[in-house]
Design a protein around this nucleic acid. Structure first.
Lengths: 219, 219
DNA sequence: GAATGTGAAGGTTTTCACAGCA
DNA sequence: TGCTGTGAAAACCTTCACATTC
């Protein structure tokens, strides 16, 4: 990029900051349930095992939400963060690959609670096509492109074997979807402007294995 | 810690480096399958979307595995990394909470392929206790402590509702287990010397939501 | 007095760039 | 010549410390 004007300038916010916002959001939900009206950076930090300065810095990237001497208003801050993260709306999601992991995710309450609504399922297995999971009928992967468009799908979750992942991602991108969550242990290519995140459930077990073998000192 | 001698001195290796080792390991498995005998940091980097310098630096923390002018020997490097990560052995794992996610994980091939063997299941639901998942009979959570010890369990995977997670972790720690993978969206406390990792599947969807809403430029 | 918001300091991770070796 | 191994530089992220505000 050789030039920019003030409207397309945006300070790069780190991935860690965004992940911590998710955590603050959850902490605030539980404070709201408890009936707390305000919370200090110190309290928020303690509940998430962070430093107060970290909490304040993270929030300061997006505005000044607190009151000096008092702290942050729980409900308002929750609303602000939900807006920043795009959690103040519903997302229409399709899930491809209704195997072990896939069908577990269809029933995963945490997704729907946060506004992530799985509304379409796809598979290539004739025995699965037409079957019903939590009220959603599994579609044939053949009709992927048109059905993704017709259903107004904005995000796709990929739960297929590793060898099928790349060509499915290609199809999904062709259908105009710009956000993909991939559970297959594969490094996938997507064009610029498409957001891809990977969820690798073995990785954390491998970290534990490393920690035990090396008696690694936990930070 | 107020003093150390050379034998317990260990340079702190970053979490990111360990996670990248997992990725190199998988890449090497696939290179081995392809029959490649050597690989350069450049090739490894490209396949994982990293820089060659990053690959070399990561590996250099653990030794000099390559040959100048040539690259790294695929099979030997794979063996070395598997040893560093503790993947050259089997781990005996218990899974607590045989719900959606829990029962999907029991059948998750990637775990067993990597030497993570789920050998015990626990639940507190009478309808589940005694039932059979992939050849493993679900035990009553009441007998957790003795059964964990008798089975020689080294790692525990927690897939229970958020409100049950902390006291179960406490019991697991009391039973002498030092590595825990937690799928509940809770911030759990463990004493020093116990390794806890969290797997939060909503977090990456939230990141995608943030990216779409802010049209965040992907790095 | 209490707690935010934020430049500056400090620390960590990544990248650069090149000496050294096959 | 080609590619590793690695100090040094650059980039990035976290923490400090304090002026500011309620």
């Amino acid at each position: 990029m050789s030039s920019f004007n003030s409207s397309d300038f945006k300070k790069k916010i780190s991935e860690s900051t965004i992940h911590r916002l998710s955590r603050y959001f959850r902490a605030l939900e539980s404070l709201e349930k408890k009936g707390d009206e305000t919370v200090s950076s110190k309290e928020l930090a303690r509940s998430e095992k962070l430093t107060p300065a970290q909490v304040r810095k993270d929030l300061s990237f997006f505005g000044s939400f607190g009151t000096r001497g008092l702290g942050y208003p729980v409900i308002e801050l929750k609303i602000r963060i939900s807006h920043i993260l795009g959690l103040d709306r519903e997302w229409r999601i399709a899930l491809i690959g209704v195997g072990n992991i896939g069908s577990a995710l269809v029933s995963y309450k945490e997704f729907s609670r946060q506004g992530f609504k799985i509304v379409k399922l796809f598979d290539n297995d004739q025995r699965k096509i037409g079957s019903n999971h939590k009220g959603i009928v599994v579609s044939d992967i053949k009709n992927l492109s048109t059905e993704l468009k017709d259903a107004g799908i904005e995000m796709v979750v990929i739960c297929v074997p590793v060898q099928d992942a790349q060509y499915l991602v290609d199809d999904v991108v062709k259908a105009g979807v710009r956000a993909i969550l991939n559970f297959a242990p594969a490094v996938l290519k997507v064009p610029d402007g498409v957001f891809l995140r990977n969820e690798n459930m073995s990785m954390e077990l491998e970290y534990l294995s490393y920690a035990l073998v090396n008696n690694h000192v936990q930070k």
